[in-house]
């Protein structure tokens, strides 16, 4: 039998990691959102100012960061729905482990084509046409 930590009931495991990731993605998206409202506010300054800042969104490196942002939001949304189901659905607690694997699968199924379409233009600009 494995050693139990003395004085705690907490065992870690995948339930802890889904929670840690939920927290990290929530904070990251929050800070992005503050910056995002600031960059959108440039439409009140001038079309030129707005277009200049939005141009950075189109560069290859920022384009890659956008994939990371979308991945973070998607994880936070799917895991948030799982937490809500555990809290409100009578069978939620019983199926919470299966739901963890299900959101992992949904995340991959959506992110693979999503990443491709998000990077399509950057890939074409760097390596030529993809079709």
């Amino acid at each position: 039998m494995a050693t139990l930590p003395v004085g705690t009931l907490y065992r870690g495991g995948e339930g802890m990691w889904t929670w840690v990731l939920h927290r990290i993605t929530g904070v990251a998206v929050f800070f992005f959102l503050i910056v995002h409202v600031l960059d959108t506010a440039l439409v009140r300054v001038s079309p030129e100012a707005y277009d200049l800042v939005i141009a950075t969104y189109k560069t290859p490196i920022v384009n890659l960061l956008e994939v990371g942002l979308v991945g973070a939001v998607l994880y936070h949304a799917l895991n948030g729905l799982r937490v809500i189901l555990v809290d409100f659905w009578s069978r939620g607690p019983r199926y919470q482990r299966q739901m963890t694997w299900a959101i992992g699968a949904v995340w991959i199924v959506l992110m693979v084509p999503g990443t491709f379409f998000m990077l399509k233009h950057t890939i074409e600009a760097m390596f030529g046409s993809t079709s």
């Binding site: 439409v43 079309p47 707005y50 277009d51 939005i54 969104y57 189109k58 384009n63 956008e66 979308v70 939001v73 998607l74 949304a77 948030g80 729905l81 999503g114 379409f117 998000m118 399509k120 233009h121």
Partner: peptide
Amino acid sequence: LVFLVLAHLVIMNILDGGVQRINFA
């Protein structure tokens, strides 16, 4: 927010040219 934000992300990043077509107009 699942609906609002995920649809926002699909519209902005994937549909109709994605982020490349965003500007003041």
